[in-house]
Simulated assay, not measured.
Amino acid sequence: MAKAGRLEEGVTSKVPAPPGSNKGISVIDLILRLVGIAGTLGAAIAMGTNEQTLPFFTRFVQFSAEYDDFRSFRLFVIVNAIVAAYFVLTIPLSIVHIMRSVARGSRILLIILDTIMLALLTAGASAAASIVYLAHNGNSSTNWLPVCQQYGDFCQGASGSLIGSFGAIVMLILTIFLGAIALSRQAKHIV
């Protein structure tokens, strides 16, 4: 009754956000960032250690394929390492969001940085995917033969590292969506 009386007298008050309204989103965000670390770090390590050597006639003459033979693969390793470091550096902010679910400025900053990292990771993974596609299928109009028949282990390693990177892309998309949902929930409680 006392609250209703105050509201009738013209005194307005902000409705506080229900406790824990964004805590669930923040916990999921933290988990997605941890999975993103695993995906990007695993992709960088898998591609960075990817190599295969094939003997040619004798054991003294050999052909080898290494990730640094391709600039796209080098870009892929560097970009995945950068995004993995970014994920590690954003873990404390994600923990802060669990403890203080009303932090707006840091959520906006994370959305902007997540979007930049998403663009960077997508570019690196797409460049590497194009080379992996050519290695598997070749290009008959330019007389590029598929090399995965000879370098099967190398191609499998490159393809496997792409899976980790594209998984991290999905994690970044989900963290952006979760950040936007958390901000919209906060905006509803402010108005």
Score class of each variant (00 low, 15 high):
residue 47 M to V: 00
residue 190 I to D: 13
residue 47 M to G: 01
residue 144 W to Y: 14
residue 86 Y to E: 00
residue 68 D to C: 03
residue 139 N to Q: 10
residue 146 P to A: 06
residue 25 I to S: 10
residue 177 F to G: 15
residue 178 L to N: 11
residue 172 L to S: 12
residue 38 A to N: 00
residue 74 R to Q: 15
residue 186 Q to A: 14
residue 88 V to G: 00
residue 116 I to S: 08
residue 16 P to Q: 02
residue 132 V to Q: 08
residue 153 D to M: 11
residue 44 A to I: 04
residue 47 M to Q: 04
residue 161 S to E: 08
residue 185 R to M: 13
residue 11 V to P: 00
residue 97 H to A: 00
residue 158 A to E: 04
residue 93 L to I: 01
residue 109 L to D: 01
residue 68 D to T: 06
residue 176 I to A: 13
residue 156 Q to S: 15
residue 82 I to D: 02
residue 85 A to N: 02
residue 93 L to Y: 00
residue 26 S to N: 06
residue 157 G to P: 07
residue 175 T to N: 14
residue 189 H to P: 07
residue 83 V to F: 00
residue 63 F to G: 02
residue 171 M to V: 14
residue 9 E to C: 06
residue 33 R to A: 14
residue 162 L to V: 07
residue 120 L to G: 05
residue 113 L to D: 02
residue 35 V to S: 09
residue 35 V to H: 05
residue 191 V to C: 07
residue 167 G to I: 11
residue 140 S to P: 11
residue 27 V to C: 06
residue 13 S to G: 02
residue 22 N to D: 03
residue 163 I to N: 06
residue 179 G to L: 13
residue 3 K to Y: 08
residue 182 A to T: 04
residue 97 H to E: 00
residue 178 L to M: 14
residue 1 M to G: 13
residue 24 G to M: 02
residue 69 D to I: 02
residue 23 K to V: 12
residue 140 S to R: 12
residue 114 D to N: 15
residue 123 A to F: 10
residue 183 L to Q: 09
residue 37 I to L: 13
residue 168 A to L: 12
residue 83 V to P: 01
residue 146 P to D: 05
residue 40 T to R: 02
residue 2 A to S: 11
residue 171 M to D: 11
residue 141 S to G: 06
residue 17 A to N: 00
residue 70 F to N: 08
residue 8 E to V: 05
residue 15 V to A: 05
residue 156 Q to V: 10
residue 173 I to F: 15
residue 34 L to N: 01
residue 55 P to Y: 01
residue 49 T to C: 09
residue 167 G to H: 11
residue 55 P to I: 02
